[in-house]
Design a binder for these strands. Structure first.
Length: 443
RNA sequence: GGAGAGGUGGUAGAGCGGUUGAAUACACCAGUCUUGAAAACUGGCAUACGAGCAAUCGUAUCGAGGGUUCGAAUCCCUCCCUCUCCGCCA
C-alpha cells in the first residue's frame, strides 16, 4: 500500500476521491507529507547501508590477510569499530522509517477509492441515477402479502424459532422454503458456470486480518464484521465471498496470458449490521447471516469497465430468467461503497412494498483492492508487473431473490407460482405441485 | 491433541558467520555441428523496488517477523506452513 495512488497522482485526484465520501480532507495533507518523509528517509538509509555493505566486504578481505599481516588486522579492528556507529545510525533510521510507514499506511488505508468520472456526484441515495428498467410488475387483483406473511402461512419460514436459537436477525427456512433457497443457489451457479464462463469456487468462510485489510473491509469497518478467536488465533466471518475469492491471487504476480479470471462462489455471508438498528427489522431483508452467489472478475485495467457492464448483464440475466421486474441504478459518489470506483445496484420489484429493493450490487474496484493486497499481473514476459483490476457483484443475493419469487409469484390463495426455469430443480420435491405446465408451492 | 522431520532459484538439491544472490544437476533460451532433429559442445539464464536515455548502479529477498554481529541462507527467539506416525473427528 506504500505506493498508493493517492500520493502518486496528486492532490486533484485526492480531492475528487474525498468529494462526498467518508473521509476527511486533512487526510490528504498528512498522507502526502508522510509520503515525502518516507522517501527521504529511504534515500538516507540506503546510502548508509551501502556504506556498511562495502565496509563488511573490506573487513572480510582484511581478516583474510590478518594472520600474515598485523597491520591488516589492526585496520580490520579499526573498521569494525567505525562500522558499529554506522550500524547504530541505521538502526535508528530504520525504526523511524518503520514508524512513518505504519502511520502512512494507517491513514492511507482509511481513504476510500476514487470514483470514476462516470459516477454521478451526490451526497446520498437521493443522488443515485436510474439507468434502465426491465419487466412490468404483474397486475394483482388482490392485496399482495409480504414474504413474511406468505412464508409463515406456508410454514416454510420460522423467525420465532430462529430467534430462540440465535436471537434477532436470523432465519429458519423449513421444507419447501429451504428447498427453494437451494434451488435458487443451484440455478444461479449453473447459469454463471455454463452460460457466462465463470469458474465455481468454494472459498474459506473465515479469513484473517490481512485478507480483510486487503479487500478494504479493515481497518474502517471492523464493527461490521463477526470475529472469532481460538486461543490467540483471530478469524473473521466473511461478510461476502468477494473477500476470499478476490484475494485468491493476493501477493502474487499473475503470469502473462492468464487473465481474465471469472469466479463464482456460493457462500453464507455474515454481517453485524451495526448502525442499521431499527431498519428492515421485518423478514429476510436484513439478516446477520444470508446466502449469496457472488461474481468476481480479475481483469486487465483497460478492460474493467467493459467487464463491469458484462457483469451487470450476467446478474440481470438471473432476474430475467426468473421473470422478476427490476431496475438498474448507478450509485452516486456519496452512496457508493468504500472500495468502489463505479457501482450499479440492481433492484427487484417487491409488490408488497410496491417498490424496488436492492438485490445485487456490481462494482468495479479498479486497482484499489489490488494495491492493498498486492495483486499484479505481467502483460507479457518482458513487461513489468501491473496492478490488476478487480470487480465483484452479487449474482444474486439468494435470500432476497427468495423473497422476490414468493412475493411476485403469489396467488390470491397464498400459494406461489414457481418460475419455469426452476421447475427442473423443484419438480417432484415435497411441497411443490405440478398443475398442467405450471408448478406451485403450497397447494 | 501427542511424537518426529522439514521449509533454499522453474524443479531437484548443496551450502565452515565473510568476494554466496547462492555450488551442482535437470529444465529453459541462444549459438556451433546436422538436410532436419536428437546427441555432443559453447554461452546465457532469480525476483521486486528505486535511480538512469542507456550500459549500469543501489537496496531488499534463501517460509514470515524479531534478535546477536562490522557482516546472517548459515547462530538465537517467536510465529506460519508442509510431511510422517499415533490419537480424535466429518
Amino acid at each position: 500500500m506504500l505506493d498508493s495512488k493517492y500520493f502518486q497522482e496528486g492532490i486533484a485526484d485526492l480531492e475528487r476521491a474525498l468529494k462526498n465520501r467518508q473521509a476527511s480532507a486533512d487526510l490528504i495533507g498528512k498522507v502526502s507529507e508522510l509520503s515525502k518523509k518516507r522517501k527521504e528517509s529511504i534515500t538516507q538509509t540506503e546510502a548508509l547501508k551501502n556504506q556498511r555493505n562495502k565496509a563488511s566486504q573490506e573487513i572480510a578481505q582484511l581478516k583474510a590477510k590478518a594472520k600474515a599481516d598485523p597491520q591488516a588486522a589492526a585496520e580490520a579492528d579499526r573498521r569494525v569499530i567505525e562500522m558499529r556507529a554506522v550500524g547504530d545510525q541505521i538502526k535508528a533510521l530504520d525504526e523511524a522509517l518503520k514508524k512513518t510507514e505504519e502511520e502512512l499506511n494507517d491513514l492511507a488505508m482509511r481513504i476510500p477509492n476514487i470514483p470514476h468520472a462516470s459516477t454521478p456526484v451526490g451526497k446520498d441515495a437521493e443522488g443515485n441515477v436510474e439507468v434502465r428498467r426491465w419487466g412490468t410488475p404483474r397486475a394483482m387483483d388482490f392485496e399482495p402479502k409480504d414474504h413474511v406473511a406468505l412464508g409463515e402461512a406456508l410454514k416454510i419460514l420460522d423467525f420465532e424459532r430462529a430467534s430462540k436459537l440465535s436471537g434477532a436477525r436470523f432465519a429458519l427456512y423449513l421444507g419447501a422454503g429451504a428447498r427453494l433457497e437451494r434451488a435458487l443457489i443451484q440455478f444461479m451457479l449453473d447459469l454463471h458456470t455454463r452460460e457466462h464462463g465463470y469458474t465455481e469456487v468454494i472459498p474459506p468462510f473465515m479469513v484473517n486480518r490481512d485478507t480483510m485489510r486487503g479487500m478494504g473491509q479493515l481497518p474502517k469497518f471492523e464493527e461490521d464484521l463477526f470475529k472469532t478467536s481460538v486461543g490467540d488465533r483471530e478469524l473473521f466471518l466473511i461478510p461476502t465471498s468477494e473477500v476470499p475469492v478476490t484475494s485468491i491471487f493476493a501477493g502474487e504476480i499473475i503470469e502473462p496470458g492468464k487473465l481474465p479470471f471469472y469466479f463464482t462462489a456460493y457462500s453464507p455471508c455474515f454481517r453485524s449490521e451495526a448502525g442499521s438498528y431499527g431498519k428492515d427489522t421485518r423478514g429476510l431483508i436484513r439478516q446477520h447471516q444470508f446466502q449469496k452467489v457472488e461474481l468476481v472478475k480479475i481483469v486487465e485495467p483497460e478492460k474493467s469497465f467493459d467487464e463491469l457492464e458484462a457483469m451487470v448483464k450476467n446478474a440481470t440475466k438471473v432476474l430475467e430468467l426468473l421473470n422478476l421486474p427490476y431496475r438498474v441504478m448507478a450509485l452516486c459518489t456519496g452512496d457508493m461503497g468504500f472500495n468502489s470506483s463505479k457501482t450499479y445496484d440492481l433492484e427487484v420489484w417487491l409488490p408488497a412494498q410496491k417498490t424496488y429493493r436492492e438485490i445485487s450490487s456490481c462494482s468495479n474496484c479498479e486497482d484499489f483492492q489490488a494495491r492493498r493486497s498486492q495483486m499484479r499481473y505481467r502483460p507479457s514476459a518482458a513487461d513489468k508487473p501491473r496492478f490488476v483490476h478487480t470487480l465483484n457483484g452479487s449474482g444474486l443475493a439468494v435470500g432476497r431473490t427468495w423473497i422476490a419469487v414468493l412475493e411476485n409469484g403469489q396467488q390470491a390463495d397464498g400459494t406461489i407460482e414457481i418460475p419455469e426455469v426452476l421447475h427442473r430443480y423443484l419438480e417432484g420435491a415435497p411441497g411443490f405441485t405440478k398443475k398442467g405446465s405450471k408448478l406451485f408451492l403450497g397447494v
